[in-house]
């Protein structure tokens, strides 16, 4: 490890993590603006503020690993390597979108990248991940070596869904290489977490289902990265499922257009100023002189260019053809 890099990732990996987080941030902030202008149809739920969780986890994954995301899925998609231009086209409902304009923001998927979809149904991804983990276990048995893993993302709200709780049990019973990430941003839509959850600890939940759980500061990339590394390694090597709670903050509303009057006065300003995971990461790597300002600025320019191009291409792209209305319901019917 070079002298000026005190981090558990080499410099090019640090820069890659920065690029992914910056891309998510710019993607979401751009959507925030364009949605307010009325450019974007439908419901949009933004991941800004939560980037360290998606990237800290996804840095450990390869394409054979599967993830099932939530309605707040853009960050997971970008971190898992889904094409940003195709995502933007999808959000605009255009031909050439990640789902040919048939899925939209809440359903972006790319199975070639192991991304099993954002999901409009809260908690629905957890059973799917049990299946993907089961498939991974069969594959590992055939080919030998460490297993692919499957990771379910769920918010603190959807952690109260029966599907999620049943999946914890099933994964423990079958000793699946599955990881359940609870992205705890303190709000189930508009409702504070304390209100809707009687036993408010996800580690306790995990223990109740017989799997280990840990809590990390989800605004600290390195905390997430190290913890995720351990739970993923454990799963790959046959140590079974675990739960990882990331305590994090949501910079925007539940959905775009949410006035967020349920928040405390000054809360948004405070979390933007003091709990910004990207700012924290940037300060850490710059402070340690592991990377230079110029290197980060170059990435910023790339990212802004990419988002600009994505929006331009999305706007310019043709809408789906009328004939597309009835295609791709079945593989064959």
């Amino acid at each position: 490890m070079p002298d000026n890099n005190p981090f558990p990732l080499p410099k090019d990996e640090l820069l890659d993590a920065y690029r992914r987080m910056r891309t998510i941030r710019e993607f979401e902030e751009r959507l925030h603006v364009d949605f307010a202008r009325g450019d974007i149809p439908g419901f949009v739920h933004l991941y800004a503020g939560e980037e360290a969780a998606a990237v800290g986890i996804m840095k450990h994954l390869w394409d054979g690993d599967h993830i099932a995301s939530t309605h707040r899925g853009h960050g997971h998609c970008i971190a898992k390597g889904v094409d940003v231009v195709a995502m933007m086209k999808e959000i605009y409902g255009k031909k050439g979108g990640a789902c040919e304009g048939k899925g939209g923001s809440m359903h972006i998927a790319d199975l070639s990248k192991g991304m099993m979809g954002a999901n409009g149904i809260l908690g629905a991804g957890a059973p799917l991940v049990c299946g993907a983990a089961l498939a991974a276990k069969y594959r590992a048995k055939q080919k030998g070596g460490p297993s692919d893993v499957a990771i379910s993302f769920v918010g603190d709200g959807a952690s109260n869904q029966g599907t999620f709780l049943e999946s914890l049990n099933l994964a423990a019973v079958w000793n699946l290489p599955a990881i359940f990430v609870v992205e705890n941003n303190g709000y189930a839509e508009s409702t504070a977490r304390d209100y809707g959850t009687a036993v408010d600890s996800y580690v306790d939940r995990a223990a109740g289902f017989g799997l280990p759980g840990i809590t990390v500061d989800g605004t600290d990339f390195f905390a997430v990265y190290e913890a995720a590394g351990e739970v993923i390694r454990r799963a790959r090597e046959g140590g079974g499922p675990s739960l990882l709670e990331c305590k994090m903050v949501r910079f925007h509303g539940h959905f775009e257009g949410d006035a967020q009057t349920y928040r405390a006065k000054g809360e948004l300003e405070d979390i933007r100023a003091n709990r910004d995971c990207l700012q924290r990461f940037t300060q850490a790597i710059l402070g340690a002189k592991a990377v230079s300002e110029a290197e980060l600025q170059a990435i910023d320019r790339d990212v802004l260019g990419l988002i600009e191009r994505a929006v331009a291409e999305a706007k310019a792209a043709p809408p789906p053809d009328a004939a597309d209305l009835t295609t791709d319901v079945y593989v064959r019917y």
């Binding site: 059973p127 799917l128 299946g131 993907a132 498939a135 499957a150």
Partner: peptide
């Protein structure tokens, strides 16, 4: 499976979407 239809029907679907 456990008596847990959401989990295992979902798991079957998830496994189908990932190669089984």
């Amino acid at each position: 499976t456990p008596l847990s239809e959401s989990a295992y029907i979902g798991a079957a679907i998830g496994a189908a979407a990932s190669g089984m």
